[in-house]
Amino acid sequence: MIGFHEGELAVQEKAGVAFDAARLEGMLRPASLDGGAQKFLAQRDFVAITARDGDGRLWTSGMAGLPGFLSSSGSTLTIGTAPGPGDPLHGVPAWQPVGVLVIDLALRRRVRINGELVRSTDGELEIAAEQAYGNCPQYIHPHEVTQPASTLPVVTDGSLGEAATALIEGADTFFLGTAHPTRGADTSHKGGEPGFVRIDGGDLWWPDFPGNNMFNSLGNIAVDPTASLLFLDFSTGTALHLSGTATIDWNAGGETGRAVRFHPTRSVLNSWS
């Protein structure tokens, strides 16, 4: 289905950018991963994916590999690895919507690919893409991807311990996963100066900076509050996965007047794949 869904349209209207957003609707046309997109994917070494585990809980995970571990043909994306043991998406079920973000944190380039996970094994994921489009380099902070050693996860009920708090408070980058009941999942990159994500009691919140006016993430949240966050320590390979719910604050002040508040209900602290 081509076009913005009802949540995206409502947020665009409330933010006063409906006219500008309408000019970008063509980016939502059916995906093609040939040509320049195919070359870009083949040269990357990191991907983030948002999907649901076997219990239906939404998570976002990161995977690293040598250039070439991502390949594409037509509208099919193949990821030559899968979330490992200890990752909340280990053994991720196939035949579900997924949101993929392929990002080069050194070159500050990214491509969002949304579609359906049609095959899932211990060493490979295959995605039938429905949308694929690039995003601007704004707010991307350069990082080198680390290949971490595997460690056992620490699973909690969503409360934030000392290590998780330190990772969040020092982060200049995180990944946000959202979903729509009929239009699938999405993974987006969020960046700012270290400390732009604040902890308030047991919740997190961050300002919503100006972007491309499409409002894919906020549009999903407006319809379905289910959300997931992924924080990475690129120097150690430590990953913090949070699953919970998000809401939009339209009276937050700041540059846009918008902020997102996230309430974690489950967390996993481990090393990413």
Results as ranks from 00 to 15, higher is better:
residue 2 I to H: 01
residue 62 G to C: 04
residue 74 G to N: 07
residue 108 R to P: 08
residue 141 H to Y: 15
residue 82 A to D: 14
residue 40 F to C: 12
residue 162 E to I: 04
residue 182 T to V: 09
residue 76 T to L: 14
residue 194 P to L: 10
residue 232 L to M: 05
residue 116 E to S: 14
residue 3 G to D: 07
residue 225 P to E: 02
residue 136 C to H: 14
residue 35 G to K: 15
residue 61 S to I: 02
residue 94 A to W: 11
residue 270 N to V: 13
residue 255 E to A: 10
residue 41 L to H: 12
residue 209 F to D: 06
residue 175 F to R: 07
residue 102 V to S: 07
residue 166 A to E: 11
residue 267 S to P: 08
residue 11 V to D: 06
residue 111 V to A: 06
residue 222 A to N: 02
residue 54 G to Q: 10
residue 120 S to M: 10
residue 25 E to A: 07
residue 208 D to P: 00
residue 149 A to K: 12
residue 241 H to I: 06
residue 224 D to L: 04
residue 155 V to H: 08
residue 201 G to P: 00
residue 85 P to M: 10
residue 197 V to Y: 05
residue 46 F to A: 04
residue 72 S to P: 15
residue 227 A to E: 07
residue 253 G to Y: 03
residue 227 A to W: 04
residue 131 Q to R: 07
residue 154 V to S: 08
residue 183 R to M: 10
residue 110 R to T: 08
residue 54 G to P: 14
residue 199 I to S: 08
residue 174 F to T: 06
residue 207 P to Y: 13
residue 225 P to S: 11
residue 15 A to Y: 14
residue 257 G to A: 01
residue 144 E to D: 09
residue 191 G to I: 00
residue 26 G to S: 04
residue 131 Q to N: 01
residue 255 E to R: 06
residue 210 P to F: 07
residue 125 L to D: 12
residue 68 G to N: 05
residue 216 N to E: 09
residue 161 G to I: 13
residue 98 V to I: 03
residue 49 I to K: 01
residue 259 A to T: 05
residue 17 V to N: 08
residue 245 T to N: 05
residue 109 R to H: 13
residue 86 G to V: 13
residue 81 T to D: 11
residue 227 A to Y: 05
residue 233 D to E: 12
residue 150 S to P: 05
residue 36 G to W: 15
residue 100 V to Q: 04
residue 96 Q to E: 06
residue 180 H to K: 04
residue 272 W to G: 02
residue 260 V to L: 04
residue 177 G to M: 01
residue 202 G to Q: 15
residue 51 A to S: 08
residue 76 T to F: 01
residue 230 L to M: 07
residue 269 L to W: 10
residue 42 A to N: 09
residue 31 A to R: 06
residue 23 R to V: 15
residue 228 S to L: 12
residue 121 T to N: 05
residue 148 P to A: 07
residue 155 V to E: 12
residue 111 V to K: 04
residue 56 G to C: 01
residue 23 R to D: 15
residue 272 W to P: 11
residue 214 M to Q: 10
residue 196 F to Q: 08
residue 57 R to C: 10
residue 42 A to R: 15
residue 115 G to F: 00
residue 158 G to R: 14
residue 254 G to S: 14
residue 251 N to Q: 09
residue 37 A to C: 11
residue 137 P to M: 02
residue 47 V to T: 01
residue 236 T to F: 15
residue 151 T to S: 05
residue 213 N to M: 03
residue 193 E to P: 06
residue 136 C to L: 12
residue 11 V to T: 02
residue 168 I to M: 09
residue 229 L to I: 15
residue 133 Y to A: 00
residue 156 T to M: 03
residue 39 K to G: 01
residue 147 Q to V: 11
residue 98 V to M: 00
residue 42 A to I: 11
